[in-house]
Each structure stands twice: as structure tokens, then as C-alpha cells.
Design a protein around this nucleic acid. Structure first.
Lengths: 143, 143
DNA sequence: TCGCCCGATTAGATCTAGTCTAAAGATATT
DNA sequence: AATATCTTTAGACTAGATCTAATCGGGCGA
């Protein structure tokens, strides 16, 4: 599920988001970067790409709309800042603790994580978070 | 590695953190909860447990000290807020998207995640984040 | 015991990410 | 054209977290 090759407009349309000029430049930027930009970085990147000003509020509104529509997802890797990822292929992330750089890790690579340890990555910690609904069956406590 | 049964004082000492009264009440609270409290919740919980006032700055200072010392770890599950976890057993987290409740998931349970799907948890998404050093071998791009 | 040092704590100012508000602008419908 | 609805805007506001400068307090040498 790589949306990068489709036009931003068709991606917005197919996800039920009305393609305004502001949303188009934001979506286009997100779909064509391998980065994991924050809202502020999105604002910087798209500023000047429209004949009109583009406000901070619109960036936040658009990011939330795109998230709700399933075009992008939130990535929580550092405190106090949300990053966004338009790569919807099932994947994980590697954060270089020195530079803060975030690198996508394809899911099949995770299975051979043992080999990766001594090569590209030196893993200090892993954080796995599941999101979903808790079924209200209290018979067994997970902890 | 469950530190809950040791006294807060011995935990602090063994991790090289000077056991002041303020740090003791904070550590004691964290070591004895199954919750994943935010800084604000820590402040609320420990307020009144000392004869003197306990300032917000001290809570933040102490949480960062305990994190740096390896007594607790940060949990990033929701935007704009850091939660803390004194359970150092290798485990993951399940976030109930409706209530925000965070539940520890022991690592061995993750292997039988297929069974869990139709029982206690209904998983919508998983976020896995590795933290570590990126070895500067540019021969292969992970993405 | 006194005085000094230095780390810990404090209240409150400040910073920053993100949200809210109210007005103005755009778009579609009749 | 009038109306309704949704989007965008600038700037006010909020919340989480950090910073600052003053004060506190325990240890230690004289």
C-alpha cells in the first residue's frame, strides 16, 4: 500500500477528504518524503508553495484530517512532539538515539532482527505498543 | 527484574541516586502502582505525603533522574504527554483507545498474540519502535 | 560549633506543541 | 443573488515541560 505514486488529489478523493489546495500541498509533501516530519516541519516545507499564506492551524487541521482518514499515521518516538508517516506499508521504526533520525524497518526485517543487531543497528531498547479495544472480560489480568 | 518489593531507598541507592525525601515518595509511588502515570498524576499522587510542599519542578527533575538512572522508563502512547513505567520486566503495552487505559503485556503473551485477538484485546494497530545507535554502514538502505 | 560548599528544591517565569475562537473566504445549491 | 456549509486564517489560549534565580540543607574541614 504505497500511495506515493498516486497524485495527492486522487489519494485525498479516495479517502473522502475534499482536495483543497492547502490539503493538496501538504499531502503531496507527506507522500513524497521518506522523512517523518513534525507539524512544524510540514509547515516549513509547504510554506511558499501556494500563492496565499498557509496558517499553522490549517496544517494541524489537515494533519488530523489525513490521520482520521487513514492517509497518514502518527509516530510517537520522542516526548512532546508528534511525527507523521505516509508510508502505510506494515513497518516499524528505528530511532537513532544520537541524531533522532527515524528509519523505516520493513516488517520482514524484524523477523531477522538477530542478524541486524551486529550490522546496521545496535538496538538498546524496543517499545511495542498495541492500540485497540479492551474487551470487558475481567477473568484474567494480563499483568 | 521487579523492583517493587525493595524499599524505594535501596532502589535509589543501588542506582546511584541520592535518596532525598522527595525522591523517595516519588519512587515509592511509581514502584507500587500498576498504572502508567504522567508527571501531573505523579504530582497529584505524592502531594501531601511530605510535611513540606513538593514542587512541579522537583517531580520533573526526579522523573528525569530516575529515567536516566534506569529505575523507570518513558512510555509514549498518546501525543503530548509522557507516561512512566517502573516495571522493568520485558513487556509491551496495550492501549484501550476508548478509555486510554494502558495495560502491560508480558513478552511471552505477545508470541501468542493470535489467540489474544479474540479474547481480551481487539487490536487495531501496533506501533513498534526500536531505539539505539545507527551503525554508519551506508551500503544498504532499510527502506 | 561555625562557616563554607555544593547539590537539591522551590515558585514562578518561560518555552513550545497543539487547540480553540471568531471572523472572513470559498464552494455548492436553490 | 441569497443562503448554507465547509475551510482557512490570525491570533488568543492551554497544557506539558523546562528554565531561572533564589533558597534550603546536609556534609565537612577548621
Amino acid at each position: 500500500m504505497n500511495l506515493a505514486n498516486q497524485s495527492a488529489e486522487s489519494v485525498l478523493l479516495s479517502h473522502g477528504v475534499k482536495p483543497t489546495p492547502q490539503r493538496m500541498v501538504i499531502a503531496e509533501y507527506l507522500l513524497n518524503t521518506l522523512d517523518h516530519p513534525s507539524a512544524e516541519e510540514v509547515l516549513t516545507a509547504v510554506t511558499g508553495k501556494l500563492p496565499v499564506a498557509l496558517s499553522r492551524a490549517t496544517v494541524y487541521n489537515t494533519l488530523n484530517s489525513l490521520k482520521d482518514a487513514g492517509v497518514i499515521r502518527e509516530v510517537l518516538t520522542e516526548p512532546g512532539k508528534v511525527r507523521y508517516d505516509a508510508n502505510l506499508c506494515h513497518h516499524h521504526h528505528f530511532v537513532d538515539v544520537k541524531s533522532g533520525q527515524i528509519i523505516d524497518v520493513p516488517v520482514e526485517k524484524v523477523e531477522e532482527i538477530g542478524k541486524l543487531l551486529d550490522k546496521k543497528f545496535k538496538v538498546h531498547g524496543v517499545q511495542v505498543t498495541f492500540f485497540g479495544d479492551l474487551q470487558q472480560d475481567e477473568s484474567e489480568q494480563a499483568k
